[in-house]
């Protein structure tokens, strides 16, 4: 069965520095079942060989092809053309929050630096095999679905507009911290760092991270808010504080 070919227009932001940024319109031959990344590849192969675009698996598993399609943060490989109004040009721009390298590619290395600051998982010392029940790891596993596309980091206004990268680690790493903090076996105490060093309090739970997550992880409701509640337990709850003073843990 043949897919019908037709032409669409792409508005692509081209350039590598503020002085030479421009948005050009290109006509590209596509078929209806294609995704936005296919259209970008077609453009690259036939008209614009030097167009910089980062991608790997084209199956929504690696999280490389993050961009802003019609202003919304998306994985280009999971954005079907048929979901767009193809009579209008589709606008494709790089992620705004990270420094631009060229065209659709940004420098996301800050995220890797943040990960280095997070203490790794600490397994209890034991010569025996320690079991874990499925109901104890369900939550952690959901968080570990993250493919590090950094769309949540890109959309988070604290990083995007307020540029507080030195004070706030962003949703991706709050998710990572939640997966460690809620791990049934991790022996590290992390709440103090989560509150102060990693800046949990900066999040005002406006939930854009959850809206853009291609893995549909409920970042806000299941990771960030529960972390906030755990921080309240430890730091903002006078009754709990009083109880702890009264019955100190041995």
């Amino acid at each position: 069965m043949k897919d019908e070919k037709f032409q669409i227009k792409l508005n692509v932001q081209i350039g590598e520095s503020l002085d030479n940024l421009k948005t050009e319109t290109y006509s590209v031959d596509v078929d209806k079942k294609m995704v936005v990344l296919d259209a970008v590849h077609e453009l690259q192969a036939t008209q614009l060989p030097e167009l910089a675009v980062r991608w790997n698996c084209k199956a929504g598993k690696c999280g490389s092809c993050s961009a802003e399609v019609n202003g919304k943060p998306k994985l280009m490989c999971m954005s079907k053309l048929s979901d767009y109004n193809l009579k209008e040009p589709i606008s494709i721009r790089p992620m705004k929050t990270f420094p631009l390298i060229k065209d659709l590619v940004t420098d996301v290395s800050w995220n890797y630096e943040v990960n280095k600051r997070i203490k790794p998982y600490n397994h209890p010392n034991s010569s025996e095999y320690i079991t874990m029940q499925q109901i104890d790891v369900d939550r952690v596993q959901e968080f570990r679905k993250c493919i590090e596309c950094f769309l949540c980091q890109n959309v988070c206004h604290i990083l995007r507009d307020h540029d507080l990268k030195d004070k706030f680690v962003g949703p991706r790493f709050l998710l990572r911290l939640a997966s460690l903090n809620m791990h049934p076996l991790d022996t590290e105490n992390r709440l103090g760092d989560i509150k102060d060093e990693f800046g949990l309090g900066y999040c005002n739970i406006t939930k854009c991270c959850t809206e853009v997550c291609p893995e549909i992880i409920p970042i806000t409701d299941e990771a960030i808010i529960p972390l906030k509640e755990r921080v309240v337990d430890e730091f903002y709850d006078p009754i709990k504080w009083f109880l702890r003073k009264l019955f100190p843990k041995k």
Partner: peptide
Amino acid sequence: ILELEKWGAVFDRTTDGKIN
């Protein structure tokens, strides 16, 4: 595989809490 678990990998579990 067991070593990976000590590094933080979380595999699916059997009913008695081992690696499924």
